[in-house]
Design a protein around this nucleic acid. Sequence first.
DNA 1: GTTCAGAAATGAATGTGATTCGAATATCAT
DNA 2: ATGATATTCGAATCACATTCATTTCTGAAC
Lengths: 219, 219
Amino acid sequence: MSEKIPVKEGRVARRQRRNRQALIQAAREIMSGRGVDAATMLEIAEKADVGAGTVYSYFKSKDELAIAVLENLMHDLAVRIEEVTDTFDDPAQVYAFGIRTVLDTATGDTHWKQLLHRSEVISDAMFRMMGPFAIRDLRRASQAGRFQVSDAELVWRLTTHALIGAALAITNDKVPPGNKRQIITQLLCMTGIGNDAAVELASRPRPKISREQGAGAVE
Amino acid sequence: MSEKIPVKEGRVARRQRRNRQALIQAAREIMSGRGVDAATMLEIAEKADVGAGTVYSYFKSKDELAIAVLENLMHDLAVRIEEVTDTFDDPAQVYAFGIRTVLDTATGDTHWKQLLHRSEVISDAMFRMMGPFAIRDLRRASQAGRFQVSDAELVWRLTTHALIGAALAITNDKVPPGNKRQIITQLLCMTGIGNDAAVELASRPRPKISREQGAGAVE
DNA sequence: GTTCAGAAATGAATGTGATTCGAATATCAT
DNA sequence: ATGATATTCGAATCACATTCATTTCTGAAC
């Protein structure tokens, strides 16, 4: 009948929270610095100041740890975008700004470049962590009559993959960075806004977002 | 001054051709059966009937071998699509049929499912091996006034990533297979054809392509 | 047909690093 | 303070990808 409900957070819970954060932080630094493959679990454990085996009581595998790192990164970016866009009037512009900022960040930030090689994983993390914002924006813009999106989830899904693919192509010099505006225009076309409006939307001036802070908390 | 120009293909050249093909074939079967990671180089070497070290005189690494397998797969599919589409009248339909067939194949064929996890690699292989066809189709349809594509390469690049991402999502039950038509419609929107025309194009009946033959030659 | 230099193939040995697991330690209710 | 339980530790394991010293094959020259 009576469940144990800890009245207060004990040392164990506190240490576990600290360890999990420290591991994500350490992994984020090492993985984004030298790439996921080149980061060894031992190195990460040492940097987080835990034993090598302990990592595995927090994350089932290296892959799972990498996913946690990506989620962390995506969450940060979504929040930083959100800080800026809630002043925009045009809901279509909110979405357009979001995807353009992701593209700029992914191609401009050294930390991101290292991670693009796991594109299916990073796209999925983006879908999940930024989706709540992006899908909301797509719907809002549709309700305002700016977009015509019948399945916002699907459009966002396709967009994440195309976006990460484009970022990867730019990073590998397969596509010149000058094509970024064109890329955003094409992706905006998927919202049914029409080509001319997409061109206009993609060329509006953009404010800066705040600087990256390192690994923040992700609940 | 005088280069050695072998008048006739000697045993060495013949064996090398045979080994390369056998390796790709063996790798294709094992990798697409159990996934790239689960396939060991020793297993592949044995199946191809060469020594473990010999693989490395044909492919610098396991990754390079995997890429060769993907290229092989993509080339096959491109050719099989080509067989059917050269009877179509509407150039826009040729393109639409192509991307729909890729989506169906990638989600329907067990061999493909295993490979989707390397999506950045498979998208790139698709870009290179099917690009010559797809980009040509995009341009033809644009010249015929059906599409309005200013940068066919870019549209194809974005489409490959979105397509593979969508296939992966369907395979992992994140998107229901019934959404395939919607996916194709959205991707067609990137050609500037307009939403209504895209819907119509995506819903035309499609002929069957020929059956997969196993690993064919790729020059 | 024999010989020989170089090319190609071989597979046992190496090295790396993810993961496991039994021992050691810390926690906390009593 | 004590013992049952949960957590951490890190040395040992293990699975491969890759290397390289050795052997085998090839084909031109005689």
